[in-house]
Design a protein around this nucleic acid. Sequence first.
DNA 1: AAGTTATTTTCACAAAACTAGAAATATGGA
DNA 2: TCCATATTTCTAGTTTTGTGAAAATAACTT
Lengths: 97, 97
Amino acid sequence: MDTRNAAVKLEALGNPTRLALYRALVKAGHGGLSVGECQQRLQIASSTLSFHLKALIHAGLVAQERQSRTLICRANYDVMNALVGFLVDECCVEEQC
Amino acid sequence: MDTRNAAVKLEALGNPTRLALYRALVKAGHGGLSVGECQQRLQIASSTLSFHLKALIHAGLVAQERQSRTLICRANYDVMNALVGFLVDECCVEEQC
DNA sequence: AAGTTATTTTCACAAAACTAGAAATATGGA
DNA sequence: TCCATATTTCTAGTTTTGTGAAAATAACTT
């Protein structure tokens, strides 16, 4: 994970709607949520949801799996852990904490 | 830390220039860096640096302390740790991981 | 094939973010 | 007071983001 990569993920999470969406998926856990379930929880236009969902997927924070007509969305925990690791990494390299 | 608050911090970190700036401060550790030292490392216009610095300070991620004519900037580690905690919090509430 | 449900893409627009030059402010020194 | 250094604010231009209605696509059912 480099700086540019981390910035994409952080920017994805740095929007209130997307952060709420992501957290809903984190809470949902392994089972994930369908796009429709996400929409019910967030109460936003489907096109707006799709727009934000795409950003999270592009950032690698969310994955989708099709089950017949519905798309299941899941938080990618590994990617979030890597991001957290990046943030705390290299702390006080030039001077001890 | 609520969602809106976390989003402000994540958005602040979600810009490549600001993330590089923040990481420079994290690396610098307790001693921090002056605004001028930050500018030397990032090689951007001083007004641009000031603009991004303000965003990090507003988000609570960076603190400043004046020492005569120079302003020393330091990463606020407590705030970052709280943000990281918020991100991993509530993981899989609805279903076990 | 025709209809139904689930989701995305296109489009248009308003709002916000990013950038940097120039001017202004703050602090200390001669 | 006058000058130098450090940093911010103002201003203006360009680019990007966020939103939702309407249309399009995908997958299933009858």
